[in-house]
Amino acid sequence: MSFVPGLGIVRGMALTLRRFFEPKVTIKYPEQRAEVAPKFRGRLQLLYDEWGTLKCETCFQCAQACPIECIDMGGIDTRGRYHVHWGPPETYGERREESALRRSGRTVPDQAYEHFEPLDLHSIDAILEEHDHDPKRMLRIMEDVQGVYGYLPVGALKRISETTGAWYAMLYGTASFYGHLRLEPEGAARGGMASDEAATRRPTEAAFRSDLDAALVGRTPGDRPGAPAQA
């Protein structure tokens, strides 16, 4: 366009006049809420409690809820238990690929698998066969596996996850929830916070846990999950 003096001013003025009549973008917040996508959960971040420890219990609920499985867990949980980590920190794209693989029904190659000590998987496979690879019988599968190994090794949990199709996050959540399931050999030294220290910090949770342990007293592997314990 040829140079005409003042044309830029005229075009700018025309632009602002057009904007003057266009619909406005402001949202009058308290009366009017912005339309947010239903899956939007805001920014992800871990919160600390008033003692400066992570509030994260490593319960894996967020990882289970994440629709594209982009959440990963690492580090030591509040009860000082074994740290959970799936190999090197995955990027979002890699996780999505892995997720797509999982959804297509194929097993997911796990680069971190070799880092764990080799495990004899025959007995696990036998137990899984016995339970028909049914993820709904997970508690009994885990109890049987613990009966074989004395505890639940990470490799065993991964094997269960691969063959039943249940998420590792769910398995870890289940295993860490019940008091009679162990993630490390009995008598192994625990790092991090002592459990009674944790109990003083979280009295409500400690009370709930002791109630649960009392309800599970006398339970033997193979009991039907959810059945009231016989006192």
Binding site: F20, E22, K24, V25
Partner: peptide
């Protein structure tokens, strides 16, 4: 008000 409307805002209301 006018400058707000030209900025696609609502302005005083």
């Amino acid at each position: 008000k006018i400058i707000a409307l030209m900025n696609l805002r609502i302005g005083p209301e």
